[in-house]
C-alpha cells in the first residue's frame, strides 16, 4: 500500500515467531500469505529457502529476521543477497546462542581485515 511503511518478516522456531507476532508484526495479506514461517522439525530446507527468497522478492518487506541456526542451513542464499533493503538480521534461538563469527554481515565487514588486504 502506498504511504505505508514496510513489514518485518520472521523465519524462526515456534517461540521466536510467537514472540514477534505478540509484538504485532504478523500479517496475512489478501492472498493469505503470511510474513512469517514457523520452522519445525519436519520443515525442509528447500521450503525455508523458497520462503526466504519469496520474502526477498516482496516489495512490502523491509527487514527479515531469521534464527541463526536456520540461516546456517541457507547460508548461500543469505550471502548472495547484497541489497540493503530488505535487511537480513540474524537472531539467536533457544538452543543456539548468537555467534557473531557466523553472521553474514559481520563476516563481510571483517573481510577488510583479512590477510589479502594487507598485501
Amino acid at each position: 500500500m502506498p504511504g505505508r511503511g514496510k513489514l518485518i518478516a520472521v523465519i524462526g522456531d515456534e517461540d521466536t515467531c510467537t514472540g514477534f507476532l505478540l509484538g504485532g508484526i504478523g500479517e496475512l495479506n489478501k492472498n493469505r500469505k503470511p510474513n512469517f514461517l514457523v520452522v519445525e522439525k519436519d520443515t525442509s530446507i528447500t521450503e525455508i529457502e523458497e520462503t526466504f527468497k519469496s520474502f526477498l522478492a516482496r516489495s512490502d518487506i523491509g527487514i527479515i529476521l531469521i534464527n541463526q541456526f536456520i540461516a546456517e542451513m541457507i547460508r548461500h542464499a543469505i550471502d548472495a543477497h547484497m541489497e540493503s533493503i530488505p535487511a537480513v538480521l540474524e537472531i539467536p534461538s533457544k538452543e543456539h546462542p548468537y555467534d557473531a563469527s557466523k553472521d553474514s554481515i559481520l563476516r563481510r565487514a571483517k573481510g577488510m581485515f583479512s590477510a589479502e588486504d594487507f598485501r
Binding site: 514496510k6 504478523g26 500479517e27 540493503s84
Partner: peptide, 26 residues
C-alpha cells in the same frame, strides 16, 4: 501458547519506514 492459537486474520501493528540514503545506506 503455540502456533494453533494464531488468529486466522492478522493486521500488522508495526511498520518500518525504510529510506535509502546517499552511499547506499538504508
Amino acid at each position: 501458547v503455540s502456533v494453533l492459537q494464531y488468529a486466522s486474520e492478522m493486521e500488522p501493528l508495526v511498520h518500518v519506514e525504510a529510506s535509502l540514503l546517499a552511499g547506499g545506506t538504508a
